[in-house]
Design a protein around this nucleic acid. Sequence first.
RNA 1: GGUCCGUUCAUCUAAGGGUUAGGAUUCAAGAUUUUCAUUCUUGCCAUAGGGGUUCGAAUCCCCUACGGACUACCA
Length: 512
Amino acid sequence: MTEKRIRVRFAPSPTGPLHIGGVRTALYNYLFAKKHGGDFLLRIEDTDQGRFVPGAEDYIIESLKWAGITPNEGIGFGEGPHAPYKQSERREIYKKYADQLVNEGKAYYAFDTPEELEKLRKELEESKASNTSYSYHVRGRMKNSLTLPLEEVQQRIASGSPYVVRIKMPENEIIKADDIIRGHIEVNTATLDDKVLFKSDGLPTYHLANIVDDYSMQITHVIRGEEWLPSLPLHVLLYRYLGWESVMPQFAHLPLLLKPDGKGKLSKRDGDRLGFPVFPMNWKDPFSGELSSGYREAGYTKDAFINILAFLGWNPGTEQELFTLDELAQAFSLDHVHKAGARFDFEKAKWFNHQYLVKLSDTEIAKAFKSILAEKGITASDDKIAVICGLVKDRVNFVKEIWDQASFFFVAPESYDPEAIKKRWKPETPALLNGAKEVIQAIEPFTAQNIHDVLHGYIEKNQLNMGGVMVPIRIALVGTTKGPDLQVIMELLGKDEVIRRIEKALSLIKLP
RNA sequence: GGUCCGUUCAUCUAAGGGUUAGGAUUCAAGAUUUUCAUUCUUGCCAUAGGGGUUCGAAUCCCCUACGGACUACCA
């Protein structure tokens, strides 16, 4: 027996921006395919024309590209042998199977109006029935091809009156299904309903389209969110009804991403409410104009973003936490996917980004920081920017935070931290600074090492207190007591600027 | 309401019948540093509750509680 080539798919619907839960689903599919040397394809499930959102499809494609989760087949990625990969362009395929199911007695036409369906639902809810849906318990009293005379059914269809195709759920039968993550599941069909497979608008519902496409695209593993678990029995039954049970894919239902606070699954609104992104990239709602922030623009590197998502519901079984995409593909296994929902931890997300930021070379960081400087109208040599970035990268999580840590390299402090002055600016400080100024004036060449040696020699010779001299110099140069090595700062600023800032501080800072 | 799924530190999670229940983030303390950050060390913190099964249970079974998903001619 030859091993079947692994084929998985990510099948979002273009009803809005892809949120990080969706990206994670895509990532796990991608990793699974990579791990097994298989195919990963992107299919757009746009059978609901009513919820179509302009730009959503491009957003999905762009997001995957940015994150490096690249399908090797499908929309936006060179199509492939099973094109088209968009369900609205495959509509003629589904009708055939819907009719086939009806002809074989496994499904039926239903003509009930929305009002009639609403009435049924109300009635069932009031009667406290255990199954409140359109099921075999009630199909006998509804308007469908099982209850209506054949001639009337044919007449209705011929005259073009609207109808749907519903699956004919077997009565009181146990459907057995297996999930790689959740194990064996059994459901009695008595609790299931006669789901609509084909809508009156001529398009299939998710259930039919999904099975038909997964079958024809030779999908071997369906890795999707847990919200689909309740419809697994229906899908298993559809494979059986269509005669495809022997090639039915294996299923793996992923745990949901939960709100960081409170209850429920992570939603679009949580991002703005809690101040962190829930989308991979910025998104502007085409209808409301509302803006939602994304990880890319928030300053996350794509590697950190991937790493963060990978660990939400999965772990390698070792204590390693930092993984490149390739390493993840090597380590990934569905066996190590957690069953319970995962709550997003924003603090840890920042830590991940910090880890990736410090791993970047100073020149790479400088490239990004340079554009921030440009926005402020500041120019400096690439080398100098790189050195500065290297000096402060340990103390930031994002490139954009570098400015807060390094602005004094480019502009002299306008004000001085009152707390620092209160604690470190003593009555003798001006005299000490004037003394130090003279010494600094004479340092040549003005290098960090030389500054260090001379200043330390001066302080020791005159039996001065190290902090009493150095800290006020720092306040004069930086504005606070914080920051990188003072000698290095001095070299970077240059002797003239150092003297200028000391004189400025001397004239501006009054004793508390 | 019904059906299904789940529950280990605050958070992400490890431990597949035998461990002082491990790691990471956060938080706290100490060391280092002229300062801050980094780094290092240490500390705090968990098997939802109750019954079984077993020599032995976080792990297997049952009940309860809690959480979640689904319950559309949405996906």
